[in-house]
Amino acid sequence: MTTERHAISVTVNGVRHDKTVEARMLLSDFIRHELLLSGTHVGCEHGVCGACTIWFDGFPARSCLMFAVQADGHDIATVEGLADNDKLSPLQQAMHEAHGLQCGYCTPGILMTMSHFLASNPAPDEQAVREALSGNLCRCTGYQHIVDAVLLAAERMRG
């Protein structure tokens, strides 16, 4: 069986990529192994752990539950796009200061989820942060320091 390939054009962190892909290639695999943006991690490939969370047209989504071919003509943001060169984003900086990461494997997905959350919720309380975070599993931290980091980032972003 010859595999049908599809030409796609995807913008990732503002950079346009033209590639051909097999229809079944998961978007997570495309980002990681075709574009070599390996900061997006894969933890479960069934949409539960949240490690592969990216922004698809500006909204957080599980990249393991989409096919690369669906991204044709769309805009994607990944963890590699968060920092401004070496300057960490407010949430990245807060994660560092509050010890919001241990092994760091779930961290890119959490950054993508919670950066979006902060953009639309500038003054969240702890419960709101925990609800927003509940779709990202972390096995190391017990979440407390992540929650601290999000609240710290929110405070700083409010200025």
Partner: peptide
């Protein structure tokens, strides 16, 4: 609606 999975899932 909030009982349905999580925001990332509800976005799609």
């Amino acid at each position: 609606l909030p009982h349905i999975a999580h925001p990332q899932i509800r976005n799609r």
